[in-house]
Design a protein around this nucleic acid. Structure first.
Lengths: 189, 189
DNA sequence: GTCTATATCAAGATAGAC
DNA sequence: GTCTATCTTGATATAGAC
């Protein structure tokens, strides 16, 4: 099925994510993407016949990569109740946002799709439900898992919207608190 | 300063918020807003000469109303370390999202501004910083306050993007967990 | 203060050459 | 597979009548 990596499709999706990050979800146009990807509108439209196709591809790759990153992180962690949720937090927030362009890029697809057609986000909702199931699989209490998950994704969204007021050190402490909250659950009565 | 309530400006901002909620931030057009507000494009442009003016007005009203709702909630709560943060959580999430159109509307302005021009969100960032200062004023530990705040706002954003997978009961339990996390801090060693 | 034009432009999408 | 050219629409914004 898949083509060689570094394919035109991949390069175009990369470009689209960068457009959203630099100019905002409302400025994801074929023109801007073509410019960033280094090809013409026509060439771009050969790969993605319309905007919906591009957004769906962005979302699909986003979800795929998030799962991969989480799996990779989980493999580095010791077993335990909190293993899944810690993998989720760290795979999303481990690196400071200025550095982790990939993480910002991931969230970009969500905002761009929401701006264009909220209906496109239905699959993302299903994925989020599955994520919650996995997070609680090892016995972690649902409420605690949910709070940590929405805090993690909330911080990502706030950062992408440039509303997050936290500096690097504060952010590091917040991530630490999220991890603590996950581990605390083990010792609960 | 202010004009009578129910003024044209207010009705237009109401309409704009509803457009974002129903069709997504990318479909906030003068046409759509004029239609919802029950006047013509020309009439609308008399009040808001360009889109930036409309978005700024939406953001200003959003921040003003959030502060008012929080203050009102705080007045109902007993004094204590966690008073401010509990007021924040409840004023944002108390009512289920289907019911609380006002709460969704508030978040709408953020997404719409972010889509149009991320620079417009600079004042929102300052407000968020001030909010964090107030939340920790009573002695609540910064990390805990921040986690609860980003979880609260994260859930709001996920709901507005239709990505939140939680049903009414799960949501109620999540809000309960946020309150517990605020109160727990009192008993810490 | 609200309306109806209308000018202008940006963006999505198609067709066909190379 | 990529390009240029073109069609078409929809959105911002202006001008001026009522």
């Amino acid at each position: 099925m898949g083509h060689h990596s570094g394919s035109a499709r991949e390069r175009i999706i990369d470009a689209a994510e960068r457009v959203v990050i630099e100019f905002g979800a409302g400025h994801l146009t074929f023109d801007a993407v073509a410019l960033k990807a280094g090809l013409s509108r026509g060439g771009l439209l050969y790969h993605f016949p319309d905007k919906e196709a591009l957004l769906k591809a962005m979302l699909d790759r986003l979800m795929e990569r998030m799962k991969m990153r989480r799996a990779k992180k989980r493999a580095e962690l010791a077993e335990g109740t909190e293993r899944e949720i810690v993998a989720h937090v760290l795979s999303s927030l481990e690196k400071p946002e200025e550095v982790d362009k990939a993480a910002r890029a991931r969230t970009a697809a969500i905002l761009a799709s929401g701006a264009h057609d909220p209906g496109l986000l239905a699959p993302a909702k299903e994925e989020y439900r599955k994520l919650m199931d996995e997070l609680t699989e090892n016995g972690l209490r649902f409420e605690r898992a949910a709070v940590i998950a929405i805090a993690t994704d909330g911080l990502r969204l706030l950062e992408l919207l440039s509303v997050s007021p936290f500096d690097k050190d504060e952010r590091r402490r917040i991530v630490g608190e999220l991890i603590s909250l996950a581990k605390e659950e083990k010792k609960a009565p």
